[in-house]
């Protein structure tokens, strides 16, 4: 399995700053927005985006974390291997502009699950999607509002996002492996 670095630490930082600006521009400011990161690596990305905007706009921005395991559509399948973790959205999302954050945007199934999970928590004004990497191969009619980088991939490649909060290093890599793996990214 070969690994090729696509983004390094400063690339990621630059991309996040750009997305932060787009979010503020799109929402005409930062009032009434909230970030919800999808576990595991969407959460630190959401926190970083919130921090950037907070510095820019001088407002408090709530950040929550979402575990979508219970909303996945493959729980009954043979291969499920997911431990349920805690969702922690300690604020009311109703009437907020909620920015959903994930690391890799792939089939769209995770996002579908996240939308269901989010809607169980309240009724946001809007839900917008921010992703660090869009690797294509959508299986559902879902699109991202803010994309860090589009990386066209083959099915048998794997995009791996490392964030320092979890992996002690910031980088994005592409890995090519034997055969296709039906990753639910």
């Amino acid at each position: 399995m070969s690994e090729k670095i696509l983004l390094n630490s400063s690339d990621i930082e630059r991309v996040l700053v750009r997305i932060a600006h787009e979010i503020v521009e799109h929402n005409k400011g930062a009032r009434n927005i909230a970030f919800v990161g999808i576990k595991t690596r969407g959460v630190p990305l959401a926190q970083r985006l919130a921090k950037i905007i907070q510095t820019m706009e001088q407002v408090d921005i709530p950040v929550g974390s979402l575990d979508i395991t219970l909303y996945r559509d493959d729980v009954s399948s043979l291969s499920f291997k997911h431990v349920v973790q805690q969702t922690n959205v300690p604020f009311d999302i109703t009437n907020k502009h909620v920015i959903l954050v994930d690391d890799v945007f792939y089939t769209g199934r995770s996002i579908r699950a996240a939308l269901d999970a989010l809607i169980d928590l309240g009724r946001p004004e809007t839900i917008q999607l921010a992703v660090l990497i869009d690797r294509g191969h959508r299986e559902l009619p879902i699109r991202a509002d803010f994309v860090g980088k589009n990386i066209p991939t083959a099915r048998n490649e794997e995009i791996k996002v490392y964030v320092s909060e979890v992996d002690a290093v910031d980088k994005v890599a592409v890995m090519r492996q034997e055969g296709g793996k039906n990753e639910h990214a």
Binding site: A50, K51, P62, F91
Partner: peptide, 23 residues
Amino acid sequence: MSMHETKSWPAGQGTMLPASMES
């Protein structure tokens, strides 16, 4: 509600990745 919820993560779980169901 303050946004500084950030300190609850990753502090609560450290840098633990989701446990494996393989066992």
